[in-house]
Amino acid sequence: MFRLKNQKSDDCKGDNEVLLSVKGLRKRFGSLNVIDDIDFDLKLGELLCIVGPSGCGKTTILRAIAGLEKPSGGRICLEGKTIEGPGPDRGMVFQDPALFPWRNSLKNVEFGLEIKGMGREEKERIARSSMDLVGLEDFSHSYPYQLSGGMQQRVGLARALANDPEMLLMDEPFGALDAQTRNSMQDELLRIWGETKKTVMFVTHSVDEAIYLGDRILVLSARPASIREEIKVQIERPRDRTGEQFNDLRKEVLGLL
């Protein structure tokens, strides 16, 4: 069994810069064709945004990478190995933060470490530094229901980061937040991304968010999803949401949707 998997992963070999590579990905749910032949690579340390019309299957792509959906065709390779299921090497942040309501923030962040069988002290040390990183050091003992939506998302992010994954998969994590919180969370994400140098794949339906965050944007077509356009964002950070370059790019992306 295992040998077979390893053999299969030989096709996965690529260049060293590439962390994740998606080749000919297809997904059908029954007769519904959701993803139709998608290819793209993700470079180490890159922040890639995916935008597309709602219901186009962008979340499905992310879930396939997370290992939560089995592709109907094609291959997803992480560091030269085919993805066969969910694993701690890919941290996922959900739109609904999906925190465990019976655990306080710190215990939520410790979840993945607990599963690795880490000792109590080490576990707590890592979880605390992860909480520090997202700026929630004072809320370790709060339960999810005691936190605001933005704070819950930070806990979700800290939980994913504590596992020290190869990459972060973010599924419209700020979609349910109000506009101000959303903007500040975007800045927070950029700061954390800068500090941790994690590779991030970020799904959003907001063109502004994609342009503000991404090194690169994949614009998807309506279902079945295929890549309509790949755009490199050349604007210097911190980006001005009302700047000329920003507006031009916004016009371009909106025109594609």
Partner: peptide
């Protein structure tokens, strides 16, 4: 959702 979150954390 919680089951999936746990799976992505290695459960």
């Amino acid at each position: 959702k919680l089951m999936e979150a746990a799976k992505t954390l290695g459960a």
